[in-house]
Simulated scan of single mutants.
Amino acid sequence: MPLIYRLLTEDDTSDFCHKVSLALSRGWQLHGGPAMAFDAASGRMRCAQAVTKEIEADYSPEMKLGQQ
Rank of each mutant, 00 (worst) to 15 (best):
K64T: 11
V51P: 01
A37G: 10
T9S: 14
S42F: 02
D15I: 08
R44W: 01
L24N: 05
K19F: 04
F38P: 00
L24K: 04
E54D: 09
A50H: 14
V20W: 09
D15R: 09
V51S: 00
Q49I: 04
G43H: 03
T13I: 02
I4A: 00
W28D: 05
P34I: 08
A37D: 11
M63R: 10
M36F: 12
A50P: 00
M1Y: 07
G32S: 09
K19V: 00
E10T: 04
L65T: 07
A41V: 15
I4P: 01
M63W: 11
R46Y: 02
M63Y: 13
S60R: 14
A50V: 11
Q67W: 05
A48W: 11
D39Q: 12
C17L: 08
A41I: 12
G33V: 00
L22W: 11
K19L: 15
A23W: 01
L24D: 04
L7M: 11
A35S: 13
R44I: 02
L8V: 12
D11T: 13
L8S: 01
G43P: 02
P2M: 09
Q68C: 14
T13F: 00
R44V: 01
R46I: 05
L24C: 09
F38C: 01
A57S: 15
F16L: 10
D12C: 05
L30E: 03
D39L: 10
K19M: 10
I55Q: 08
D15Q: 15
Y59H: 15
V20L: 06
D12K: 00
T9Y: 10
K53F: 03
I55S: 04
M63S: 09
D39W: 03
Y59K: 14
L8Q: 01
C47V: 06
M1W: 02
M63G: 06
E56Y: 00
T52S: 06
T13M: 08
G66D: 13
F38S: 01
I4W: 00
R26M: 06
T52Y: 05
S14Q: 12
L22F: 12
L24T: 00
F38M: 12
D39M: 06
S21M: 06
A35N: 06
K64E: 14
L24A: 08
G43T: 07
I4V: 15
A35T: 12
L3M: 12
C47P: 00
E54L: 10
D12H: 09
F16V: 07
M63T: 05
R44E: 08
P34H: 03
A37W: 10
P61S: 15
Q68D: 00
H18W: 15
S21C: 13
S25F: 03
L30A: 08
A23P: 03
